[in-house]
Simulated scan of single mutants.
Amino acid sequence: MQILRKAVRKAQSLAQGRTESVFRSFEAQEISRATHLNLVPPRQKRGGGLGTLTYAEYCWTIGLFQPLIYQNLPSRRPGRFLDIGCGVGRLYLATRPYLETSDEYIGLDVTENSIRICQDIYKDETAARFVHFDVHNAYYAGSQSSETQPYPFDADSFDLVTALSVWTHLRESDWRFYLNEVGRILRPEGRAILTFFVVDPETQHGDRTGTAAMPEYSAPDDRTWTFDTPAYDSQDWLYPAWAAVPEVAIGVRKPAFEAALEAAGLKTAAMYPGAWRQKLGLFFQDIVVLEKMKS
């Protein structure tokens, strides 16, 4: 069964690549109406996908997060923007239309290859720079330093922090440490837009049908995203039993999440439940908008 699944995924990937090239050839004129989409790198430049297999997924992610970023732009300018786990630049493209000449955007990632790709593709973008963060992650950067390190930025130095599926891959100690770092580097009343899995009793045990309408292309009995296994003996950080290492996908129980926010000096400004719950959702993971509390 596993061999069959790999074969199906490979066939889908090849088909997506061919479809993408055809769409690009026919859509050139329409794409020109959204100039930031012209910066989406061709598939062969993305190192085999790096979490984004198709041009359509790039556009969908950019289109989804652009209004969220817009709603949480700093009132003061120049502004400083930090994208933690920037990958190959999806959220940079979502942020780029709002950057003013004096603003600064920094993309940070533990994957050195992603940073090299960004530095090459966006080398002419004067408001942006991309920085390799040399720390260990069992899923993404197993050979790097295992010592936890603070983010290399001063306290109270960023107006907006974004992180697409970063805390999803952190064990409890790192999850808490880096959430505290977000609280440290944000300016008072600064915002952070993060995505991960917030586990409540309903979702933990796989009973996610509820009363809401189900996604059309999702099986109601799908237990893939049932978080039922303690991650490194943690009581509140859990992962699906099928994962090879916990850092593939880690969810946090809601009470622990709320307590960690308070400890970091953060509060929830908005939350958008994800479709992983087998209910209609804005994004696959939960999106949480956080605000730094005043001292």
Rank of each mutant, 00 (worst) to 15 (best):
Thr19Gly: 12
Ser13Ile: 05
Gln44Met: 05
Val245Tyr: 12
Val288Arg: 01
Leu93Trp: 03
Ile193Asp: 04
Glu216Ser: 11
Ala241Tyr: 13
Asp109Met: 00
Arg176Cys: 13
Val135Leu: 09
Pro201Asn: 08
Pro215Ile: 09
Gln16Pro: 01
Ala264Gly: 05
Leu4Tyr: 04
Val131Cys: 12
Leu164Phe: 15
Gln2Arg: 15
Ala241Thr: 07
Glu181His: 09
Leu186Gly: 01
Gly79Tyr: 02
Phe133Lys: 05
Ala7Gly: 07
Ile106Glu: 00
Pro201Lys: 05
Gly142Tyr: 10
Pro246Asn: 03
Leu93Pro: 04
Gly265Cys: 02
Glu147Gly: 01
Ala256Arg: 00
Gly17Arg: 10
Leu238Val: 01
Ser102Gly: 03
Ala212Val: 07
Val248Ser: 08
Ser13Asp: 09
Ala127Asp: 10
Val245Gln: 01
Ala241Gln: 14
Arg223Trp: 08
Leu99Tyr: 04
Arg43Trp: 00
Val22Leu: 14
Glu262Tyr: 09
Pro188Arg: 13
Arg24Ala: 15
Ala212Thr: 14
Arg223Pro: 05
Phe227Cys: 12
Tyr92Phe: 15
Phe196Thr: 00
Leu160Cys: 03
Trp237Ile: 08
Glu125His: 03
Tyr122Gln: 04
Lys294Asn: 06
Leu93Ile: 00
Tyr139Thr: 12
Val198Cys: 07
Gly63Leu: 05
Leu194Cys: 09
Arg43His: 05
Gly89Thr: 07
Tyr98Asp: 02
Leu4Thr: 02
Ser234Asp: 06
Met214Phe: 10
Asp233Asn: 12
Pro230Asn: 12
Glu125Asp: 13
Tyr239Arg: 01
Pro41Gly: 13
Ala260Asp: 00
Val166Asn: 01
Arg80Asp: 06
Phe23Leu: 14
Phe196Ile: 06
